[in-house]
Amino acid sequence: MKSFLWGICIFLSTITIAQAQITQDATRLLRVHEDDDFFNFWGRGTDRAYTNGTCFGYVYMKKKKSSFIDKWIFPTAGPNSINVFEWDGMQLMFTPDDLSDRKFIPGDFYYSAAVVATHGLTSYNPVKKYRIHSELVFGIMGPWALGEQAQTFVHNLLGDQPPRGWANQLPNAPLLNYNISYERMLWHPRPSLEVIGGFSASAGTMIDAVSTWGYARFGLINPYFGDPDLHTATRRKFQLYLMARPQFSITAYNALLQGGLFRSSDADFEEHRKLQTSHMNPFIIGMDYGFVIGIGRTTISYTQQTSSPWMSTTRKHSFGNITLLIPISKATHFP
């Protein structure tokens, strides 16, 4: 079964890769997003570390001005910005390398899972060529996130090794985060090439971190930041391009790697913490790469995301992302 799934992933990778370009003429979209460390360009899939993330989302534009939370905590990119809102629900899972061991493994990742909802805004300025993305993330981690049940179900379905160590997972805790990022055009020598720079900051009970990156894409592309003229913004009905994104991050705290808000009051966690020989690496370098296909207002994409080790005694890690954007509205432009 894994050989069959690997074949599907390689097929998808020959036609796509993920990123977040504006869809200026599609006012409502469904988004399906799947991270998995078994997805791999080179056929070297694993089942460890950040092992899975499944997300379903609704992306939309609206005519009315924002109010309440949307108005006060989601900044826009100027008075004539193109504003794209979203709601997402996602489950994330982390596991150690050896799923067969029922005991706590001191030199590896904790078993941990989270279920979160995200509400956010991506605001584009097509004239000055920049964008601001801001989001509020809220949810839970621990046994209430049903990571054990989800992974066991999938492994039984595929005939894979059942995970036996979920009794050692990180305890329940609430998650609340505010994340913001900024990107700006750095170099645009021709219509087929764009080089963009960006940085982000995250704060809350889920993750506290800052990141910076460069992002280059080359091929048959529409403008990344859109255009005041809708015809120019959507001139290509077929897009196909390569992308690369080197990045660097500094993380002060990650609940899914270190335990959540009430971790010190959990006796099992305290016992495991005393035995733990691995710690979170605060400095991470990584590279995302792949390619994208867009047909009309539909996009399917695959990204290979690689990074240096997240935990001190573990290896570098790689996982793939498949994202599908499906329009569910007529082509409409909101100025």
Results as ranks from 00 to 15, higher is better:
T314C: 08
Q239G: 14
F104E: 02
R102V: 09
W187Q: 05
E34H: 09
S13N: 11
F138P: 10
G45K: 10
L324R: 03
A209M: 01
G286D: 05
R236L: 05
Y110W: 12
V154Y: 07
S301V: 10
D47E: 14
F248V: 10
I250F: 08
F109K: 03
F291N: 09
A113Q: 05
A267D: 13
T313R: 08
L275F: 02
R236H: 14
R217L: 09
L30T: 09
S329N: 14
H272T: 07
G286Q: 04
K316N: 10
Y241L: 00
A209V: 00
G290S: 05
I300H: 12
I180T: 04
M61R: 15
A233L: 03
L261I: 12
A267E: 08
K65A: 07
S66D: 13
K71S: 11
P309L: 01
P282C: 00
R297T: 14
K103L: 08
S249A: 06
A145K: 00
L257M: 06
M206D: 11
H33P: 10
Y302L: 10
G107T: 06
I322M: 09
R263C: 10
R263K: 14
G142L: 02
S3R: 15
I207C: 05
L230A: 12
R315H: 08
W166D: 05
H317M: 01
C9Q: 12
Q151W: 03
M311G: 00
S264M: 08
R31G: 13
F85L: 11
F74V: 04
G57Y: 10
P335G: 10
A216S: 12
V116E: 14
P327Y: 12
Q21S: 08
S3F: 02
Y253D: 05
G139R: 11
F39I: 15
N321A: 07
G219L: 02
D108C: 12
H272I: 09
A117R: 06
K2I: 09
T232D: 10
V137E: 13
S123C: 04
D98R: 07
I295R: 03
K64Q: 02
R273P: 02
R48C: 02
L256A: 04
G43R: 03
I300Q: 09
R235C: 10
F225R: 03
V210K: 00
R102C: 01
K330N: 15
S192I: 04
L220D: 07
W310F: 05
Q169H: 14
F38C: 07
T277P: 08
D288N: 10
F109T: 04
I300C: 11
A331C: 06
S307M: 07
D108E: 06
D266F: 11
I132W: 05
Y241S: 04
S181F: 06
A26L: 13
H231E: 14
A49T: 03
I284E: 01
L220A: 09
P282V: 00
P174T: 09
W213V: 01
S278M: 00
R102A: 15
P228W: 07
D25F: 03
I196N: 03
C55T: 15
